[in-house]
């Protein structure tokens, strides 16, 4: 079985700060990490490797420094790592991002593609389903668990829903989007960390993926960011340090004033 996991390098958004003067993100000093849902997805892939001897490839599209998360994945035990990087791929929205990644996947052999449900920076949760569409494959999003049935070449997948869950049976090859909360990712192995630096990270340019230029990068992006600005918080009201009895009075008066009671 061949599995490809799509992983993205993201700034740790819990540490992101906004420059109040310019309204731009301060990226200096913000650690870059492997997107949490992708790490969950990777763990699912590695469990299939443990069970069925699956061959696991990770791919990321990004700047050259995204190599760091590929090294981390190698140290966790993946077999092959690909960095798709090219100026022509820059400025992509989700459609152009998914077109490029789907282009890379088209050159590979796989039974399963795993993406994270959502990247914590762009926050759209769109790239996984869009990859599935470009490849004309079935998709299951919000995957919490999956089993492979070798004889029927199908996956039995548990999908999270608002009310509970659904069990779906899907023909391979297919695309699933994984939830980080569904699984605890393994740590990098000590000898894995050592060999991770001996293993090769393949670097691919846009010429490797054979996607028309009007489908990738800025040119292939139907959406554009017209403006970006820091979130305006509404002005703070009054804060009082008072006894519990006084606190109750303040709250009750406020509730009366606003006709809540």
């Amino acid at each position: 079985m061949n599995i490809v996991v799509c992983i993205k390098q993201v700034p740790d958004t819990t540490e992101v700060k906004i420059n109040p003067q310019t309204g731009t993100l301060i990226r200096e000093g913000v650690p870059s990490i492997m997107n949490p849902d992708d790490k969950g997805g990777l763990e699912f892939a590695l469990q299939l490797k443990d069970k069925f001897g699956a061959h696991v490839t990770v791919i990321t599209m990004g700047l050259p420094q995204a190599e760091a998360i590929l090294r981390e994945a190698l140290a966790m035990g993946v077999d092959r790592a690909i960095l798709l990087t090219d100026r022509k791929l820059g400025g992509a929205d989700t459609l152009a991002t998914s077109s490029a990644i789907a282009g890379a996947l088209r050159t590979m052999d796989f039974d399963l593609v795993i993406t994270g449900r959502q990247a914590i920076d762009g926050d759209t949760a769109q790239v996984g389903p869009q990859i599935a569409e470009h490849l004309d494959l079935p998709q299951v999003s919000y995957m919490e668990d999956l089993q492979y049935n070798e004889s029927t070449k199908t996956f039995t997948i548990r999908k999270q829903t608002e009310e509970g869950y659904q069990i779906l049976e899907v023909q391979a090859p297919c695309v699933v989007t994984a939830l980080a909360s569904a699984v605890s990712p393994r740590y990098m192995r000590v000898n894995g960390i050592v060999t991770a630096y001996d293993k090769e990270v393949e670097v691919w340019g846009a010429d490797r993926i054979q996607v028309p230029e009007e489908r990738i990068g800025k040119a292939g992006s139907p959406t554009s960011v017209y403006k970006a600005f820091p979130k305006q918080l509404k002005p703070a009201g009054e804060t009082h340090e008072v006894t519990p009895e006084e606190a109750v009075e303040l709250i009750v008066n406020k509730l009366k004033e606003k006709h809540i009671i």
Binding site: T13, D121, D123, T223, Y226, K227, F229, K231
Partner: peptide, 12 residues
């Protein structure tokens, strides 16, 4: 986006 730190106006 960015975990609620940034607002972006998008056009299509």
């Amino acid at each position: 986006a960015f975990g609620g730190n940034l607002m972006a106006t998008i056009l299509c």
